[in-house]
């Protein structure tokens, strides 16, 4: 006979993570940054003082883009499951085309190629390109989330008298949100990292600010070390936030 304990000896997952990869990376990045800034204020502290404006811009681009990408994604996701052939094909073609073109090329296209017809401000062009690109990815995330909800939910709502749109709004989307949240969180982080591409336009994001600093000081090694660490710290914080949200929405019910 095997004696079964009540599980008290089994460490909980959270305790086991004291030396998790996340903690090591996060603490390591912070420590290195602080050490460098204190031990060699010139140039590290100077770089750190120069970059924050860029962090703000990076966040602006990220948040504006994610906002439009979510709207575009929801529309695309609904289009992809639509039984209307025209709507469905339009959404599918959009996804196929956008996924087949590198983001950098899309950025160039909207800024330079279309610049022949309309000269968009850098920031606007950046947000448009990021939104269009990530809208397609979000569309697929939304589609998968909506399709993961059991058909019985739609039938129950429709049998009560809800029309298709009301069924989506009150019954399907609130439930699909749970499935959608983790991948949306990941897309959000991926988008933040990809905003570094907009530095090739004249958008003064983190990377752009770094390039400016490096060009003047010739401190390429130092500058890009700081830039890498700053991106790392931001994405690590975000990924922690996303996994907290995931846990919170992981079940229905009190608590």
């Amino acid at each position: 006979m095997i004696e079964v304990s009540d599980g008290a000896a089994i460490p909980r997952r959270k305790d086991a993570g004291l030396f998790s990869a996340w903690r090591i990376s996060f603490a390591g990045a912070i420590l290195i940054l602080v050490y460098l800034a204190v031990s060699q204020p010139d140039p590290y502290y100077e770089i750190l003082r120069f970059i924050p404006d860029g962090i703000l811009v990076t966040f602006q681009v990220t948040i504006c883009s994610i906002f439009f990408a979510l709207i575009l994604g929801l529309i695309t996701g609904l289009g992809r499951i639509s039984r209307n052939r025209i709507v469905n094909s339009a959404a599918s073609i959009y996804v196929e085309v956008v996924r087949g073109i590198p983001l950098l090329v899309q950025l160039f296209y909207i800024y330079y190629a279309l610049g022949r017809f309309v000269r968009l401000p850098d920031m606007v062009a950046a947000v448009i390109a990021m939104s269009i690109c990530y809208g397609a990815y979000m569309g697929e995330v939304f589609r998968a989330g909506i399709e993961s909800i059991h058909k019985g939910q739609t039938e129950a709502a429709r049998s009560l008298g809800f029309n298709q749109a009301q069924t989506m709004r009150y019954v399907i989307i609130p439930q699909a949100w749970r499935t959608i949240l983790p991948p949306v969180g990941n897309e959000f982080i991926a988008l933040l990292k990809d905003t570094s591409l907009v530095s090739i336009l004249a958008v003064a994001d983190i990377l752009r600010r770094g390039r400016e600093f490096a060009a003047e000081s010739f401190a390429y090694f130092e500058t890009y070390t700081v830039i890498a660490l700053v991106y790392l710290i931001i994405t690590l914080i975000l990924s922690k936030l996303v996994s907290h949200l995931e846990e919170r929405y992981n079940h229905y019910g009190p608590g």
Partner: peptide, 27 residues
């Protein structure tokens, strides 16, 4: 026309009370 299903199909994201009030309030 009310309908009752074999697999209940209650809305899992709503409380029992909200399951009952959703349609009357919205419709």
């Amino acid at each position: 026309v009310g309908m009752v299903f074999q697999s209940f199909n209650l809305f899992p994201h709503k409380t029992v009370l909200q399951n009952l009030t959703l349609a009357p309030m919205k419709l």
